[in-house]
Amino acid sequence: MRFMVIVKATADSEAGVMPSEELLAAMGQYNEELVAAGVMKAGEGLHPSSKGVRVKFSGSQRSVVDGPFMETKELIAGFWLWEVESLQACIDWVKRCPNPMPGDSEIEIRQIFEAEDFGAEFTPELREQEERLRVQMSKT
């Protein structure tokens, strides 16, 4: 099972406060453990929302809204992509994580859809396209 593990933003991360050397070292060690266990597939920190934009869709119309975005609790400061055998295994790994932010912080776990989750609507042609795209992405 694949999961996106989402580090929620805080007022400090949104203000552009960078992690301490101690936290960077602890996270580096934690990431080493994840990679050695075959769990971590990707992971990155994100710039504050003040450097981002949102594209809003309304029918065929598109509009761009510049950051920063007000609801810090709804924002993402970073993420990992993990592959583990269960949600509980993912939870167990998250519990071992160093606190990603000074003070209070939160990590959200969301399972990633797999092809079989889509049922009959995901036709053989669409499955073939998906596989072809995954192969192409793995080569870059």
Rank of each mutant, 00 (worst) to 15 (best):
I76V: 15
D92K: 01
A115V: 10
G28R: 03
A42N: 05
F57A: 10
V35Y: 09
K73Y: 05
M18V: 09
E83S: 13
K73N: 09
W82Q: 05
R127N: 11
F118D: 00
G28D: 06
E74W: 10
A115G: 05
P102R: 14
G67Q: 04
E128G: 10
C97V: 02
Q29M: 06
K139E: 04
G78F: 13
S63E: 14
A115C: 05
D66N: 14
W80I: 02
Q61W: 03
M137N: 04
Y30S: 09
S50E: 15
A11S: 12
E85K: 12
M4N: 07
A37D: 07
L87G: 10
S20Y: 02
A25N: 10
G52S: 15
T72A: 06
W82E: 02
F57N: 02
M40P: 00
D104V: 08
T72S: 04
M40S: 05
L46K: 07
S63C: 04
G78E: 12
R62I: 15
F3P: 00
F122P: 00
E114K: 01
I109G: 01
R54N: 03
G103F: 10
I112L: 09
V39N: 04
E125I: 08
A115F: 06
A120S: 15
E85L: 03
K139R: 15
V53R: 09
K41S: 02
E14V: 04
E114Q: 13
A25H: 09
E106Y: 08
I76E: 00
F113G: 05
E14G: 07
P98D: 10
Q61H: 14
G16V: 04
V55E: 07
V5Q: 07
L34E: 12
P48T: 12
R110L: 04
G67F: 05
V7S: 09
I107W: 00
M18T: 05
V65D: 11
S105L: 08
G45S: 14
T72C: 03
V39G: 04
T140R: 10
T10L: 03
A89R: 12
G43F: 11
L75W: 11
W93N: 03
N99F: 03
E131V: 10
A15T: 06
T72K: 03
P100F: 12
A89W: 05
E44W: 05
L126K: 15
P48H: 11
A25R: 08
D12Y: 11
E21N: 05
S60D: 15
E108A: 13
K51L: 14
V65M: 12
A26V: 10
E32L: 13
W93I: 07
S13C: 08
S50I: 15
T140C: 02
A36F: 08
K139T: 12
N99I: 11
E71Y: 06
E32A: 15
V94A: 09
W93Y: 04
I6S: 07
E121L: 13
A77I: 12
Q88M: 05
E116N: 03
M27L: 13
G119N: 02
G67A: 08
K73I: 08
P48C: 10
Q129E: 07
F113R: 06
W93R: 08
G16M: 04
P102N: 13
S105C: 14
